[in-house]
Design a protein around this nucleic acid. Structure first.
Lengths: 215, 215
DNA sequence: ACCTGAACACCGTTCAAGT
DNA sequence: ACCTGAACACCGTTCAAGT
């Protein structure tokens, strides 16, 4: 094929293609070569749009976080004067939903700094929510940090559980010695199917604690 | 060099060598070839001890978590009948400290399932702490999940912040357009140096919420 | 500016072979 | 059982060259 300008690709097109691969083949398959090939490009052509693979990964994180703020806003826009708790809850739930969408999303977020525009904007919204409720500024910043930590960690545990399930179904029953002595952890074992979706419950406890401290 | 049995290496020796590389050169440098070379081995020799790189990574996670339970116990063994809160706090703090030790530890934990013996044992201790305080079993399991999520997420945010700091110092001042419009996020900006170590504060809020719900 | 093709220094993993 | 050496199918990234 002849070199030269063939079509006009945007950074967003490449990020979309990368997400497609992330969804279908997992994080390990998101390679410069793979993304380029899915767009009919040579690997080196990608370096026209992004200076490194890391830059592409960061752009993916930003695209992921860009929808969180708007999604949370649309969830609560009907009742704009909703209490602080519902607003914070909407943000956290939107962030969690976004992380749960793509199975490799947490590895993505964990793989680099969170100092992009949308990452900072999300934090700003969270802090503003707490400040609006009359929380001292220093506490509001720490409260926002706690909420972000909880949501991120819950997503990480989700991903870990999914990875464990995949492996369990892949292994043959004979070799699966891991759960043969599961009785050694009776409490964990008994809670395996009971818990349901603990995300909202835990977030409610955290918000309870934050609310109590503010009062 | 001649093939054949030369010295007796254990899985623990290899895990130790892998942690050495993780600490000094980061997660990306933890390769089968690199670990083998640091032990004076050929890459293929490692497959005698671990069936895959993933298995080595999991063994690293297990070694990381194995010290958490004992560390938490030694922190509170003087006062064995300490209230539940202090015991849970000790576990969470020990887990956090262990994750903060190695910069690439969260990527490690996030990269696979958490179904090893020590991972399950840690969860069991946490659940037992809540149950001992009279919490219903289902709530105790969800409370333990919330604590693990918070600690994991806080470690992930720690790592992200460190990654951001490293990059900031590496970039030349001219190219650093990221923080030139930092005034767009006044709340986040103002909180940059103030927060101190928010880990304990946030954990206290979460435990407040859990305690309140139990009462 | 956008793209190709060749090349460099890496990966994880498998396989046949040696002791 | 433990190890080597060669090989396969990949990586991210750079560089010279084409349009």
């Amino acid at each position: 094929m002849k070199p030269g300008p063939r079509r006009s690709l945007s950074q967003a097109d490449i990020v979309d293609a990368a997400f497609e691969i992330l969804e279908q083949k997992g994080f390990a398959a998101v390679s410069v070569r793979g993304v380029a090939a899915s767009l009919g490009l040579t690997p080196t052509a990608l370096y026209t749009y992004f200076p490194s693979k890391n830059a592409l990964l960061r752009a993916m994180v930003e695209q992921l976080l860009s929808t969180v703020g708007s999604a949370a806003a649309s969830d609560t826009e009907v009742t704009a004067d909703e209490p602080w708790r519902d607003r914070v809850y909407a943000h956290a739930a939107a962030l969690r939903a976004r992380l749960a969408d793509h199975s490799g999303a947490i590895v993505l977020v964990t793989s680099g700094p969170l100092d992009g525009r949308h990452a900072l904007g999300l934090n700003e919204s969270l802090v503003a929510g707490f400040v609006a409720d009359g929380m001292p500024h220093a506490d509001a910043a720490r409260a926002a940090h706690a909420v972000r930590a909880y949501v991120l960690g819950a997503a990480a545990l989700d991903a870990a559980r999914r990875a464990g399930d995949d492996e369990e179904s892949a292994a043959s029953p004979d070799e699966n010695t891991l759960w043969s002595d599961a009785a050694a952890f009776p409490l964990t074992e008994a809670a395996a199917g009971v818990a349901g979706d603990g995300f909202a419950w835990g977030l409610d406890r955290l918000l309870d604690g934050l609310e109590r401290h503010a009062a």
